[in-house]
Amino acid sequence: MSPPAASLACRQVVFVRDRRRVLDDVSLTVSAGEVVSLLGANGAGKSSLLRIMLGLLRPQAGEVRLDGRPLPRWSAPARARRMAYVPQTHVASFPYTVEQVVALGRLPHAGLGRALGGEDREAVQAALQRMQVFSLARRDYTSLSGGERQRVLLARALAQQAPILVMDEPMTALDYGHQVRMQALLRELASEGYAILNTTHRPDEALQVATRAVLLQHGRLIADGPPQQVIDAGSMSALYGVALTQLDASAQRFFTHRP
């Protein structure tokens, strides 16, 4: 898409809130072609790390680099053309149509003043088609199911045409069928050169979709590597504080609770 291969990296990030170290010396890199899944218990600092990577929070120490350049040195629209955010939920207070929601992804390209041009409209249509929400284009976003909403939000990010996607629990609202399709889509996007950072609550999901898994515990990064190595009964039991046994069967790994 854009000439330099996309990368998003943070180095030695420290984030303190109310005198608590939410993130402590965290370093993480996401490059083109990767799907990096961030795992951690509630309160481990996943959301804070995501928001810091997006430039929505400023760390007290350490820095975030987008394509090798420190994040604060990017202008807001330029940054938005390189990096898109897919929130877990989008609260719609007003009855925007699906098409209008997706078209907001063109803001970093068209700016606030100009109307959408032909290129913008093409990007919107391509994103609607790719996420299979084209037939919903005129529907009211507020009338959609959770799974449809999630696909619309991803369509907005695709319309943004940014090579880095930061996604907050993209699977949580989806039914099983859409989860499977979403996993395939994320891998497909990565193979096209997107760099994807996502959070998840489910180890099996990370095993399916991620090219790398990163474990975050009490604000510290305790493991970073291929999912099959990082995610096993030992690490998951420690991470979530439950006793788990693992079951490997034909390249798949399952976990069960060991009481």
């Binding site: 928001r51 997006l54 430039g55 929505l56 202008s75 807001a76 629209p77 330029a78 940054r79 938005a80 053309r81 990096m83 898109a84 955010y85 929130p87 989008h90 609260v91 207070s93 007003f94 925007y96 209008q100 907001l104 992804g105 803001l107 970093p108 606030l112 943004q160 930061v166």
Partner: peptide, 15 residues
Amino acid sequence: DALSLSDDEARSLGV
């Protein structure tokens, strides 16, 4: 339209 989004979404769109 942009301001009707949540702050995080709007900021991530460069607003």
